[in-house]
Design a protein around this nucleic acid. Structure first.
Length: 273
DNA sequence: AGAGATACCTGGGAGC
DNA sequence: TGCTCCCAGGTATCTC
C-alpha cells in the first residue's frame, strides 16, 4: 500500500536507474487500470527522461519532448527495471523499453494505479490531473496555523479529514492512525473540536512520522516493495496500525479496531482523547 | 458546498 | 485439502 514515503522511495530508485535514458518502445498488455493506457503510445520515440518529481502520491517523469508520465501506484502497484528479455510477470501491464536494453515495468495486480502520458505546455507546469491537490506535508507552509484554518469549521472526523488530499497530500490510512496515536487524539474527534495547539502537534507528528518512514524505505504491509525488491522497514515501527487485540505500548490497554468513514481505525481508548 | 457512502479490483487470509 | 467469502486501500463519483 504505497503511501507518500513509499512513493518517494520508488521515485528515488527509479531516478537512479532511468535518468537520461531514452524511450525506444512502449508495450501495454491491458486496456486500462484506473485510466486507459492508450496515451502511453503517444510518447515521442527517443525522448530522453530528464527529471523526476513527486506530488502527493503521484510520480511525474518529465521527458525532453515536453511530455510527462504521471504515475500512481494505487494500492498494489510496483515498478521494476530489468533486462528487456526478462519474462513478463502476470500483472506487469506496462513495459517501456530503454536505449540501454533495459525494460521499465509497471506491475499493478489490483489495477488501482494508473500511468498516463500528458503534455507539459510549459516546463514545470503542473499537469492538470494534479491541480486540486493540497499542500505537501514537508512544505514549510504546512503549519499548525494552516491546518487549523483549513479544518476548524469542519464537522467531519479528524481521521477522515487528515486523509483528504485536498487539505494535505500523502497521509494515508496507515500513517493517520500512527499520527493520531502519537498526538493522543481520538480518531472520532470532529475537526472543529481540534484546538490550534493540537493542530501544531498534528503537523509536527505528520512531518516526523513521514520523514522516519521515508528513512526506513516505507512500510511493507502486504504489497509494497521498492524498485529493487527490498521491503520497507517502517512496519517494524508501527505502534497501532494492524495491532488490534494487542496491548497499547504506552498504557497496556487493548488496541481497538473500528471502522470510521469506511476505513479501519486502530487506536487506544485510554491514551487517545 | 459539505458530508458520507460506494465502486473500482484481485490476492490472500479466514473460516468451514 | 479445497472451497467460498470478505477485506485491504486511494481516488472518483454519486446522493442527500
Amino acid at each position: 500500500m504505497p503511501e507518500l514515503p513509499e512513493v518517494e522511495t520508488v521515485k528515488k530508485a527509479l531516478e537512479k536507474v532511468l535518468i537520461h535514458h531514452k524511450i525506444v518502445a512502449t508495450n501495454t498488455y491491458i486496456d486500462k487500470m484506473r485510466y486507459s493506457v492508450d496515451s502511453l503510445h503517444d510518447v515521442k520515440l527517443n525522448s530522453e527522461i530528464i527529471a523526476f518529481r513527486r506530488r502527493g502520491r503521484y510520480i511525474i517523469v518529465e521527458l525532453d519532448s515536453n511530455q510527462c508520465y504521471i504515475i500512481h501506484l494505487g494500492m498494489s502497484g510496483s515498478m521494476r527495471v530489468v533486462v528487456d528479455n526478462e519474462p513478463r510477470k502476470k500483472h506487469e501491464h506496462v513495459l517501456i523499453s530503454l536505449d540501454n536494453g533495459m525494460s521499465w515495468r509497471f506491475d499493478c495486480p489490483r489495477r488501482f494505479g494508473f500511468m498516463v502520458l500528458e503534455q507539459l505546455h510549459e516546463r514545470g507546469n503542473e499537469p492538470l490531473i494534479l491541480a486540486k491537490l493540497g499542500i505537501e506535508p514537508f512544505d514549510e507552509k504546512f503549519t499548525g496555523g494552516y491546518l487549523y484554518k483549513k479544518i476548524h469549521k469542519r464537522k467531519v472526523k479528524i481521521k477522515t479529514l487528515l486523509m483528504d488530499n485536498s487539505i494535505v497530500v500523502g497521509v494515508g490510512n496507515i500513517y493517520v492512525n500512527e499520527v493520531l496515536f502519537q498526538c493522543q487524539i481520538s480518531p472520532y474527534r470532529t475537526a472543529d473540536s481540534i484546538s490550534k495547539k493540537e493542530c501544531e502537534l498534528l503537523v509536527k507528528n505528520i512531518k516526523e512520522i513521514l520523514a522516519r518512514a521515508i528513512e526506513a524505505g516505507g512500510t511493507t504491509i502486504a504489497d509494497f516493495k521498492g524498485v529493487d525488491g527490498e521491503e520497507g522497514k517502517f512496519v517494524q515501527e508501527l505502534l497501532v496500525y494492524g495491532k488490534h487485540g494487542e496491548n497499547c505500548p504506552v498504557c497496556r490497554n487493548e488496541i481497538i479496531k473500528e471502522v470510521i468513514g469506511s476505513r479501519s481505525a486502530f487506536y487506544c481508548k485510554k491514551c487517545q482523547k
